[in-house]
């Protein structure tokens, strides 16, 4: 089985995610970009899992855990974003610099 294509896809997706995290201003989009990164991780894990072919299917199991944890994190993240939107009427992350230096 050829694993390289999957890895290239994963790496691309990860890079797009990083780009989004660094550049998008809206907090929700930043969160989504992080989800992209996690999706890239899942692609990697599943591809490797199939490639390595271990009896315990650790790659697939790992991917399931990542999906679960990611869902929980998004829950937390959106809660925080909602809070900020309520207090500031804006969810732009680059306006948050009350604390610096």
């Amino acid at each position: 089985m050829i694993v390289n294509q999957f890895l290239v896809l994963g790496a691309l997706l990860f890079s797009i995610g990083v780009y989004g995290v660094l550049v998008r201003r809206n907090a929700v989009l930043v969160l989504l970009s992080i989800e992209l990164m996690l999706a890239a991780v899942n692609i990697n894990l599943v591809a490797f899992g199939a490639f390595v072919d271990d009896a315990a299917a650790a790659g697939q199991v790992f991917a399931l855990f990542v999906i679960t944890v990611a869902a929980a994190e998004v829950g937390i993240g959106l809660a925080i974003v909602v809070l900020i939107f309520r207090n500031r009427s804006s969810a732009n992350v680059d306006e948050l610099d009350l604390m610096k230096w």
Partner: peptide, 23 residues
């Protein structure tokens, strides 16, 4: 709020990087 958001974003980003490394 700001403290939580910064902590969260950097935390999740680093978790993603960690996971990518683990994969």
């Amino acid at each position: 709020n700001e403290a939580a958001l910064k902590f969260f974003l950097i935390g999740v980003l680093s978790a993603a990087i960690l996971l990518f490394g683990m994969s």
